[in-house]
Design a protein around this nucleic acid. Structure first.
Lengths: 155, 155
DNA sequence: AGTTGAGTTGGTTTATAAGCCGGATTCTGT
DNA sequence: ACAGAATCCGGCTTATAAACCAACTCAACT
């Protein structure tokens, strides 16, 4: 579940999880994945269900009065979408249009899929290249001083 | 697993791990290796699987909202690729083209393979010589102040 | 010099991904 | 409520890329 792939979306905007990643899902008996927004950059995150449960419950338990925390909760929890995994065939993920907009994937045929161990990231190809080469993006969404309660968290 | 070798890449970009190193893998029952980017210099790192598991799990657990941490995670985790011994006991590593570009190995027939004990490094031959003689490279990638959480880590 | 093991190479096979198409379902507007 | 359109979903086919395998070359050691 590491490494980077350029994957194409079909005409209908569906994303097929590459086989080498699928294997690791099957191995861990994961049958569902969750896709949601990344709070910091115009990109998406894909979690296996079990990982998602950890993260979402941590997030939910934070005190909801801090505006930054609420923003995080809205962004991450409010945009999550679950997809079933078919162990026999391939796994086709239909990315909700709101998320596609967010990650600047409208009309894109190719996307970058990056395996980060316990999660994946989905990027617009040129945004990802820009990131890799140290360039700066037009949009960096969450650019604030984080409260202590969040600093230690990893999403 | 120490010492320096000049090794050739074949037309398909495959790298054959020299026998003397292979032996030490077999001795330790390592059947898989992981190749990824070095975050600091235009070079690649090869870890035996067990070593990789340590490093990657440490990296994944760091606070994921810090931009520098995310950069490190992207570079190291997002570019990792696993190879295992083939049935003949040979190990041909296909270096992904993105990594070849990164380490300036496009169109290079020869590379420098440096054994560092628990890992290997792969360098463009002339870059490595430059380093050895104290010269400076055109590209030094990670040029930032590291947060305390990372300073103590070794990759 | 002959033998053995390592390195290198290229062709073959297999696995995978991407395009294509038809059918089903939902949505919308009248 | 109905018709048309748009969206969604699954299977099939083709093209591509990676894994496999086997033969050849080179070098070292006896």
């Amino acid at each position: 579940m590491y490494g980077f792939n350029t994957v194409s979306l079909d005409q209908k905007g569906r994303l097929a999880i590459p086989a080498k990643y699928r294997a690791s899902f099957i191995q861990k008996n994961e049958t569902q994945i969750v896709i949601t927004k990344d709070p910091q950059y115009p990109s998406l995150k894909i979690y296996p269900k079990s990982q998602w449960l950890e993260i979402s419950s941590k997030l939910e338990s934070l005190q909801g009065l801090d505006p930054i925390v609420r923003n995080l909760q809205w962004t991450i929890l409010g945009n999550a979408s679950v997809t079933e995994f078919d162990p026999n065939g391939r796994m086709l993920v239909l990315i909700p249009s709101e998320l596609r907009k967010y990650a600047e994937l409208i009309n894109e045929k190719q996307i970058s899929l990056i395996g980060m161990g316990n999660k994946f990231e989905i990027w617009n190809v040129s945004n990802w290249e820009m990131r890799q080469t140290g360039g700066s993006l037009a949009t960096e969404i969450l650019d604030v001083v984080l409260p202590e309660s969040i600093k230690s968290m990893s999403f």
